[in-house]
Amino acid sequence: MTSRPPRAIAVLTAAAALCVTTATTAHAAQDAERRPPRIVIDWARAWNGTDPQALGALFTAGGTYTDEAVGITFHGRQEIAGWKARADSLIDNVHVTVRAAHRDGDRITVEAVYSGHLKGAPKPFAVPMTTLLDLDRNGCRITSDQDHYSLTTVLTQSGLPADWTPPAH
């Protein structure tokens, strides 16, 4: 067995530590790339929660929320919170499952599954959805949300006719 001088052991130990640190940093960077941005996590949590104000709070004061499938846009935090409250009153177990999120500057494209059970419908639904989130300069609040999914598919999966409309409140 050959003995190494203490200096060689110190150099090898430092090199091994650098390698572990570099690998750990690389893994952390890969995990960060796979993890959706914080605002997306908060957005999904707000949709999956029961407090409509939590969704509205994610937006700037003049933010907009457009549901392209229904063809309606809400302006400001209160209207957006009202939209979440209306969705909760019409759909049991509203749930958004984020599959991927891609950020390009102040825009995030979210690939998700939108699911729930329309009240009075024979079956639940789960449809693919793409959401475009535009953020303020700081990236802290949403200025615009555009949800894209197929209302026809929601109704078909739910076992409802294509001309079904929600009851008035």
Rank of each mutant, 00 (worst) to 15 (best):
T2P: 14
P6G: 11
R7T: 12
R7M: 13
R7L: 15
A8T: 11
I9K: 11
V11T: 11
L12E: 08
A15Y: 07
A15Q: 03
A17K: 07
C19E: 08
C19Y: 00
T21G: 11
T25H: 05
A26R: 06
A28Q: 14
A28G: 09
A29Y: 03
E33I: 03
R34Q: 11
R34E: 08
R34D: 04
P37L: 01
P37M: 00
P37R: 05
R38Q: 13
R38F: 07
R38V: 08
I39V: 12
I39C: 01
I39H: 03
V40H: 01
D42H: 06
D42P: 04
R45H: 14
R45Q: 15
A46N: 07
W47V: 01
W47G: 06
W47K: 08
N48P: 07
G49I: 03
G49C: 01
D51W: 04
P52K: 06
P52I: 07
Q53D: 15
L55C: 04
A57P: 07
L58M: 02
F59N: 09
F59A: 05
T60V: 10
G62S: 12
G63Q: 05
T64H: 11
T64E: 15
T64W: 10
Y65N: 15
E68R: 13
I72Y: 10
F74E: 08
G76T: 02
G76E: 00
R77K: 05
Q78D: 15
E79I: 01
E79M: 02
I80G: 06
A81E: 00
A81K: 04
G82E: 05
G82V: 05
W83Y: 15
K84D: 11
R86H: 13
R86F: 15
D88Q: 11
L90I: 13
L90C: 09
I91S: 09
I91V: 10
I91L: 03
D92R: 12
V98A: 07
A100T: 12
A100S: 15
A101Y: 06
H102Q: 14
R103F: 01
R103L: 03
R103H: 10
D104E: 15
G105K: 09
D106K: 12
D106Q: 15
R107G: 01
R107N: 03
I108P: 02
T109I: 10
T109V: 14
V110E: 10
V110A: 07
V113G: 02
Y114R: 02
Y114T: 00
S115F: 06
G116I: 05
G116S: 06
H117V: 04
K119S: 05
K119G: 01
K123N: 15
P124R: 03
P124M: 05
F125S: 07
A126C: 10
V127C: 01
M129N: 07
M129C: 12
T130C: 11
L132H: 09
L132R: 09
L133Y: 10
L133S: 14
L133E: 13
D134S: 13
L135M: 07
D136A: 08
D136Q: 09
G139Y: 03
R141M: 08
I142A: 03
T143Q: 10
S144G: 11
D145Y: 11
Q146A: 09
Q146L: 12
Q146V: 14
Y149H: 05
S150F: 05
T152K: 12
T152V: 12
V154G: 00
V154N: 06
V154H: 00
L155Q: 12
G159F: 04
A162W: 08
A162C: 06
W164G: 00
W164R: 05
T165L: 04
P166I: 01
P166S: 11
H169T: 14
